[in-house]
Amino acid sequence: MAPSRRASPDHRRCTFEAVPPGYDSCPPLEAGLDSHYMRLALDQAHKAASKGEVPIGAVLAAADGSLLASAHNEVEATGDPTAHAEMLCLRRAAGVAPSWRMPAATLYVTVEPCAMCAGGALAARLAAVVYGARSPLMGADGSWVRGGVLADECQRLMVEFFRARRRGEVRGPPGAGSPVQREAS
């Protein structure tokens, strides 16, 4: 994570930014492929929003293009603060992939992963992580993480969700075991 990244009061108000064009340091392998998987991740994010979860989705794609796992945030439902979409993807993929080392797999996530999820991706030896919207406060973007894929759409989903939640239009999942209230994942 960038140690010098300081949060200004304005920063705090807008937590999820679109990545400016030309931001990513590594060129996308195939732009079409990236946005295809990001769409799948966005579908997961929409699913999360409909359940009152923080709308972040992730998919894990193998080198041959097959889908190893897909997940959305389940922090509210499980009361487990580590149940981020990325972590769930990595946990689920362990049952599908031949080994827990997944050096050819790429993780697609709608919002820049936090330090925990980036650490998890490192532990699983993933080839790459691709994210949509930036998260300046919590994000852990490093050189091997690629950002900005469908950024506007990913960002809009987050901004609209939290705007609705501040107005009290979104509530936690009905009948869930944990009544946690979270601001950001």
């Binding site: 499980t78 009361g79 487990d80 603060p81 580590t82 149940a83 972590m87 990595l90 946990r91 362990a94 827990w100 080392r101 998890g120 532990a123 699983a124 030896r125 075991g177 944990s178 009544p179």
Partner: peptide
């Protein structure tokens, strides 16, 4: 063993499970 099964992750998960049951 899964790469994410560090001691902390298991402990946090276990606390969450306990709290869920209690609630």
């Amino acid at each position: 063993v899964h790469p994410l099964q560090h001691a902390v992750m298991l402990a946090v998960e276990a606390v969450a499970a306990g709290q869920r049951a209690r609630l």
